[in-house]
C-alpha cells in the first residue's frame, strides 16, 4: 500500500515561507525551554555556587533535595494541597461556569467579571487579606485555610476554560438526549458533563499548577512546619544558595509535567482542542 503511494508523491519544492515558519517556531521553542535548560545545568553542576560554564555533572543536589526532610515534606504538602485545590476548583469552578452560562442570572456579565476578579487582584493581597481575616475570626492558619486560599485564586481558571467550552456548546445535543427520554439529571451526567469535562479538567490542570507553584498567597498563610515547597525554597535561598534549589525546581517541573500527562491520558485533554 505505502510503497506505490510514496513513489507517486510529489517532491515538495523548497518553500522559503515554510522554512521561515519552522525556524521561527524553533526559536520560540528554544526561547521557552532555555530557562529550563539553564536550571537543569545548575542542578547537575557539582559546585556549591552557581558557576558558569558548569564544571561537571553530579546528582549531589538531587540527593540533597531528597534527603532533606524539609524539602520532601514541603513537596508532599504542596502536592497534597494542589490535589485538593484541583478537586475543589473543578467542582466549584465547574458549577460557577454552568450557573454563569446557563443560569439566566440577572447581572450575568457583572458576576462573570466578579468571579474573574481574583485573577486581577495581586495574589499577595489575597493572601494578606485572608491571613488577617483568619486571625480575626480566630481560626489560626489551618491547612484547609491555605487550600481555600489557593482554591480562591485557582477557581477563575476553571471558570474560564469551562465557559469557553460552554460557549461553543450545541444545546441541541442536550435536547436530543431529553427527547430520547433522559431526565434533566441524566442529561447532565450523560451529555453535559462529559462534553464540558475537557474544559473543566484543562482548568483543573491550571488550578493544580497555580496551587503547586503558589508563592504570594502562601507567604502569609503557611505555618511553621507546614510550609509549601515554594515558600521553603524561597527561605532556603536566603541562607544557602546552592544547586538544591535548582534540583527542587527540576523536580517541580517534572512533577507538574507528569500531572498534566496523567490527566491527559485519563481524560484526553486533546478533546478540548477539538470542541
Amino acid at each position: 500500500m505505502s510503497a506505490p503511494l510514496q513513489t507517486i508523491r510529489n517532491k515538495q519544492p523548497f518553500d522559503a515561507g515554510r522554512a521561515a515558519y519552522l525556524t521561527l517556531n524553533g526559536l520560540l521553542l528554544a526561547f521557552l525551554l532555555a530557562p529550563i535548560a539553564i536550571v537543569l545545568a545548575f542542578a547537575l553542576n557539582p559546585t556549591p555556587y552557581i558557576s558558569f560554564p558548569p564544571v561537571g555533572v553530579s546528582l549531589r543536589w538531587f540527593e540533597k533535595f531528597f534527603r532533606t526532610p524539609e524539602f520532601t515534606n514541603a513537596l508532599l504538602l504542596s502536592l497534597w494541597i494542589a490535589g485538593c485545590v484541583l478537586v475543589l476548583s473543578i467542582v466549584i469552578g465547574g458549577a460557577c461556569a454552568l450557573a454563569l452560562a446557563r443560569g439566566n442570572l440577572p447581572g450575568r456579565s457583572f458576576l462573570t467579571a466578579f468571579f474573574m476578579s481574583p485573577l486581577m487582584l495581586p495574589a499577595i493581597l489575597t493572601g494578606l487579606a485572608l491571613f488577617q481575616s483568619y486571625l480575626l475570626v480566630g481560626i489560626g492558619r489551618p491547612v484547609w485555610g491555605l487550600i481555600l486560599a489557593h482554591t480562591l485564586v485557582a477557581v477563575p481558571y476553571v471558570i474560564r476554560t469551562t465557559l469557553a467550552v460552554l460557549h461553543n456548546f450545541d444545546r441541541r445535543i442536550e435536547e436530543a438526549a431529553a427527547v430520547l427520554g433522559a431526565s434533566p439529571t441524566r442529561v447532565f451526567f450523560e451529555v453535559t458533563l462529559p462534553l464540558i469535562r475537557p474544559g473543566v479538567f484543562a482548568g483543573g490542570v491550571f488550578a493544580f499548577i497555580v496551587s503547586f507553584d503558589q508563592f504570594p498567597v502562601s507567604l502569609f498563610l503557611v505555618v511553621p512546619k507546614g510550609e509549601t515547597l515554594p515558600v521553603v525554597l524561597f527561605n532556603y535561598m536566603k541562607f544557602d544558595l546552592d544547586g538544591a534549589i535548582a534540583a527542587a525546581s527540576m523536580v517541580s517541573i517534572l512533577l507538574a509535567l507528569s500531572v498534566v500527562l496523567v490527566l491527559e491520558r485519563l481524560i484526553g485533554l486533546k478533546a478540548y482542542v477539538k470542541l
Partner: peptide, 22 residues
C-alpha cells in the same frame, strides 16, 4: 515551640492582632 522560618516575619506580625500576636 512553633518556630516560623518563613519570611517575612515583620509584615506577618504587623498584620496579626496586637493583643494576640502571631
Amino acid at each position: 515551640v512553633s518556630a516560623d522560618q518563613a519570611f517575612p516575619y515583620v509584615p506577618k506580625l504587623q498584620a496579626s492582632p496586637k493583643n494576640d500576636p502571631l
